[in-house]
Amino acid sequence: MSHGLALDRAAWSSPWRTRSVRDKGVLSLGLLVAAVSLPPLPGDAAIVVVCLALLLGPIDVGAARLGRILWLPLVSIAIGVATVAVSVSWDAGVRLAVTPEGTAMAGHLAVRALAAVLAMFTLACSTPMVDLFSACRRARVPAPLVEIAALVYRFTFGLLESAYAVRDAQGARLGMVNRRTTMRSAGMGASALFLRAWDRARRLEEGLTGRGYTDTLVTLERPRRRSGAFLALSVAGLATLVAVSVAWEVVR
């Protein structure tokens, strides 16, 4: 789970945290849509380069942290790409083969998925979840839904702490020495977590009711920096990416 905390920590400590969600959203979601829409060359390859430059430059994730948060999606992509690359037939018994079509499809897929993951990271590594909740409220998403999502986020970290503590305690008592004890420990751990989640929710509800809680937990927000220049540069960069990709296809 350390990669998960690494993503959250990266978002909170990013120099881009003070930028408005609108500005970052246009850039990141634009890159994401471009990644799944443009051809792998030169479109997705260019997006990979741009995103790496943003993540290691102004977003300031750091190479080591980027490696930690990237390994899980890379493994997932590798398994999927390998499955696509290998063809199966059963006319004369089950036969596996690597065909040029399968290899080409897998290659395109690998570049596209990598570009999309890095594009998503430009948002995830620069924007904490609480900023996204505030943006949802401003976008008039129904308050109870945003409130529940925000509460899930708040509960998650306390429960994760509990999960680590339970796991460490079980490990110290030899609760993970074989498959049987591991299953038993996992069952006990999940039950303990459910009860803690339930108990914390009930205690929080009682405490908030006593303080007049009726609909939302109102918190103060720091003003976010909106920049017309940033927005214009993002749109111009995305338009250039699309234009170059389309021109490349036409010329080819």
Binding site: M1, I148, V152, T156, A190, L193, A197, W198
Partner: peptide
Amino acid sequence: RLLLAAAGAFTFVLSSIK
């Protein structure tokens, strides 16, 4: 709301149990 949020957080954290 708080119980639903607790259920969501529980579902999320459950995915961390190996």
